[in-house]
Simulated scan of single mutants.
Amino acid sequence: MGAGVALDDERKERIRALLTTGKSKNLIAKEVGVSWATVDKISKEDPDELESLREEKREELIDVIYSDMQEALTLGRQKIKLAQVALEEFQPTIDKLIDLLSEKDDVKGGDIVEVIKAISSITNIPLGQISTYFGTLYDKRALMKGDPTNNTNINGSMTVKQDLKKLSPEELKNLENILGKVADAG
C-alpha cells in the first residue's frame, strides 16, 4: 500500500481480526498488503479491546474443542460396542477360514479373500487413534483454560547441602519456583 493511501475500514477490521489470532505483525502485513508499521499502529490503537477479542476467540475455541471431545468420546464408545459385537462374530469367521484352508482341493481363492476381508474389518478398529485425539484435545483445552495437563503433586523430601550463597541468580530463581510449588502442594 502506497504512502498517503487511506486504509479502508474493511482492511483495518481484517488486521484487527488477524491480530486476535496471534499471527505475527509481519505475516499480517504481507497477508493484508500493508506495511508492518500500519499493523503495529492498529495493534496499539485499543490494546484492551484486542485482548478482549483474543479472549473471546480463545473461549470459542475452547468450546469447539470440548464439542470435539464429546464427539470423540461418542465415537470411541461406538467403536468399543462394535468391537464387542465383532468379538462375538470373530470365532465363527476364524472357524470358516480354517474349514476353507483344510479343504485344500475345493477351496476358491475368492472365498479365502472374503473371509480375510471380514477378519480384517473386525480387527481394524483404531481405538488408539481416538484415544490419542481425545487426550490431545483434553490437554489443549486444559492449557487454554490455564489448568495443568499433568500431575503436579510433589512427594518426597529434599536435603540441601549446598551453601545458598554459592548459587547463581538463575539457580536461586529455580529453587524459589520449586519451593513455591512445594508450598502450594502442601
Rank of each mutant, 00 (worst) to 15 (best):
R58V: 14
D48C: 05
E114M: 11
D46A: 04
L179N: 13
W36K: 01
K23R: 11
L175K: 02
E88G: 14
V160G: 05
I119S: 06
S120N: 12
T20L: 02
G128P: 01
S157C: 11
E114A: 15
R141N: 03
R77P: 00
A142Q: 11
L73W: 09
P47D: 15
V85S: 15
T136D: 04
L175C: 08
D99I: 15
M69L: 07
N26S: 13
A72H: 04
V182S: 10
T136E: 07
K57W: 01
N174E: 13
D8L: 03
M144N: 06
R16F: 03
D106S: 15
L53P: 00
L18A: 09
L167Y: 06
V34C: 03
N174Y: 01
L19P: 01
K161W: 02
G128Q: 10
E31A: 15
D139H: 12
K117V: 05
Q162K: 11
D99E: 12
D147F: 10
F134K: 04
Y138I: 09
E114L: 11
E103C: 09
D95A: 08
E88V: 11
V34G: 00
V34N: 03
V85K: 14
I119H: 05
K117Q: 10
W36D: 06
D48W: 05
K161L: 13
L50N: 03
I178N: 02
F134E: 01
A37K: 03
K145Q: 11
A83R: 01
S102L: 14
D139Y: 08
K57M: 06
P47S: 11
L137P: 01
A83I: 09
G180K: 14
N150H: 14
D147G: 03
T159G: 13
T152V: 14
I130G: 02
N26F: 11
I119T: 06
T20Q: 08
